[in-house]
Design a protein around this nucleic acid. Structure first.
Lengths: 166, 166
DNA sequence: TATTGTTATACTCTATAACTATA
DNA sequence: TATAGTTATAGAGTATAACAATA
C-alpha cells in the first residue's frame, strides 16, 4: 500500500492488471462463441465489420492493416468469406495488381443482425449506469484503447481505416 | 439522439459498442505479440497464470474450467508447456484418473518476468488518471467483466478458480 | 455406469518465405 | 526494381467424437 507516483497505489495496479487480463480473455471467448452461432470466426467478423463501415470497400492491404494482420493471413480469411458468399473480390481496373473487396448483400444482412444483437448487450450494460458513469466509461475505455493501439504500433484501426485511395 | 430508457442514448450505445469491439481485438493482438517475445501463446499464458495464482496446482478439469476451454484442448496446451519444462504432470494417488498440474521452477521465474512487464504498462496507464478516476475505471471494468462472464455461463474464472478439492 | 483425461480428426488462424503478376 | 497479392508450409488452438483407465 505504498504510494508510488501521482498517488498511484500498487494495489490499484494489481487490480487493474488482474481485471484487464480476465476481461481480455473472457471477452475473447465470449465473442468467439457469440459469432459461432452465426457461423463466423472473430477474424472473419473483424473483416466484415471493417467493410460494413467502409461501404465503398477496401483493398487487401487496407484490410490487412485495419485488421492488424499480414496480407497472407488476410488471403485465407477472405477466401472463406467469398466461399460463403458474404464478400466479393473485384479486380481494380486502374492498378491490376490490386484487389478490391466489397460486402455482398448477404454480408450486409448478416452484419445488421449481428451488430443489433451486440448492441442489445451493450445497452443492457449501460442501463445499469448513470449518464455520468456512462460518459466516464466511454472515456476511460477509449483511453485504454489508445494506449493499447500506441503500443501495437497501429496509428489507426478497424473503425477508422487509414484510407489513402479516396 | 432519442432517449431510450434510464436516459440512455443510442449514441452512447454506438460508442461503447465500437470501442469495446476495437479494444477486444486490439488487446488480443497486442497481448499475443507481447507474449510471443517470451515464446508463449495467449492460451498457454492463461494456463500458467492460473497455476501461478494457485500455487498448489490444479487438475486438468479445473484448468479447463478456469480457462473456459474443453478438456481435449487443454491436453494439447499442457503438452507444449510440459515440453518446454514450464509445468509438470503428476498422477493423483487418491484418484488415479486425475492428473495434477504444477508450475515448474522455470515457469515461476518466467511468470514473474511477464507479470512485472505487464504491470509496468498498467501503471503507465493509471498514472495519467486521478485517484478517483482510477477507482472508477476499476469499478467499471469489473462490471463489464461480470456481465461478460455471466453471459459466458462461467460463475467464476481464471483469477478465482472454483476449487472444490481443497 | 459415470468420470477423468487422452487420442483422432478436421478446420481455422497465424507468420515466414517464395512466388506471380503488374507497375 | 518495387509493389500487391497469392501459394506453400509449419505450428498452434479449437471443438466433437471415440476411446482407455479408473472409480
Amino acid at each position: 500500500m505504498q504510494p508510488v507516483q501521482n498517488g498511484l497505489l500498487p494495489a490499484e495496479v494489481d487490480d487493474l492488471h488482474q481485471i484487464s487480463m480476465r476481461l481480455n480473455w473472457a471477452s475473447r471467448r465470449h465473442f468467439a462463441h457469440e459469432l459461432d452461432t452465426f457461423g463466423l470466426t472473430v477474424p472473419q467478423f473483424i473483416v466484415l465489420h471493417t467493410l460494413y463501415r467502409q461501404s465503398r470497400g477496401c483493398s487487401m492491404s487496407e484490410l490487412a492493416e485495419a485488421s492488424l494482420q499480414v496480407s497472407a493471413t488476410m488471403t485465407g480469411i477472405v477466401d472463406r468469406l467469398v466461399e460463403r458468399g458474404l464478400v466479393q473480390r473485384q479486380r481494380d481496373q486502374a492498378d491490376r495488381r490490386s484487389v478490391h473487396i466489397v460486402l455482398d448483400q448477404a454480408g450486409v444482412l448478416l452484419m445488421e443482425q449481428i451488430e443489433n444483437k451486440q448492441k442489445e448487450r451493450i445497452a443492457y450494460l449501460l442501463e445499469q449506469l448513470s449518464h455520468e458513469e456512462r460518459q466516464h466509461m466511454i472515456r476511460l475505455m477509449s483511453l485504454y484503447l489508445e494506449v493499447t493501439l500506441a503500443e501495437t504500433g497501429a496509428e489507426d484501426n478497424i473503425s477508422n481505416i487509414p484510407i489513402s485511395v479516396d
